[in-house]
């Protein structure tokens, strides 16, 4: 019995602890994810800029030719979000989407703006889905997954805010540790859970 415990159960249990520690006690790949955030944001902004002068033909009032494609689009009603009659309003919404791309690049309210950019880009480019490519797909999937990650730990306004706030941290504040954007070390046994737990 002790043979099984020492050579099977114990190693398995150790792996369980190591795995949980890797997943729960630290954040991983924070530099890579921050670089990814900036690169994906730049790609989306670039796409919006290169098509800016063609926006009405592709997705606005001049895109009547794409209506048959829209009727069979798997995204359903999402493709109607940019289907506004006023060209001025359409341009305003287009520029708001560019603003979201900029917000992701500079890391402002990163999680929310990343999600909105993912939905907004899908709503726009799917208005003329045959003009799209696999780049649209990978960008959408990437942005969606980035919502579940901490992509603002570095080179972002969110990280700057946390740095500024942590110069005078309210002791044991959950809010502070929740928005912790910098790679904080969790020293075991070092203080109450709320101030050491990273997210």
């Amino acid at each position: 019995m002790s043979l099984v415990r020492d050579h099977v159960i114990q190693p398995l249990n150790d792996w369980n602890i190591r795995g949980q520690g890797w997943l729960l006690l630290q954040q991983n790949a924070l530099y890579g994810l921050s670089a990814t955030r900036i690169l994906v944001g730049v790609a989306m902004l670039g796409l919006l800029l290169t098509n800016f002068t063609s926006r009405h033909i592709l997705w606005g009032t001049g895109s009547f030719w794409a209506e048959p494609y829209r009727e069979v689009n798997a995204f359903g009603e999402l493709v109607d979000v940019f289907g506004v009659e006023s060209p001025a309003l359409f341009t305003l919404m287009y520029m708001a989407l560019m603003g979201l791309a900029v917000a992701v690049i500079i890391g402002w309210r990163t999680r929310a703006t990343t999600l909105l950019l993912a939905i907004g880009m899908a709503a726009l480019v799917e208005r003329a889905s045959p003009m799209g490519d696999q780049g649209d797909n990978i960008a959408r999937i990437g942005l969606l997954l980035m919502v579940l990650m901490n992509t603002s730990a570095h080179w972002s306004l969110d990280a700057d805010d946390v740095d500024a706030a942590s110069s005078a941290p309210p002791p044991g504040s959950w809010a502070r540790s929740r928005t912790c954007g910098t790679p904080c070390r969790c020293s075991p046994g070092g203080g109450p859970v709320s101030s050491t737990m990273c997210r």
Partner: peptide
């Protein structure tokens, strides 16, 4: 290190630990 990890994990909410492997 393993003991340190084990101790640090005890400070986490039980729900977070229980959800780890189902999420994986």
């Amino acid at each position: 290190p393993l003991a340190q990890t084990r101790r640090a994990l005890r400070h986490l909410p039980g729900g977070a630990r229980a959800l780890t492997w189902p999420l994986v």
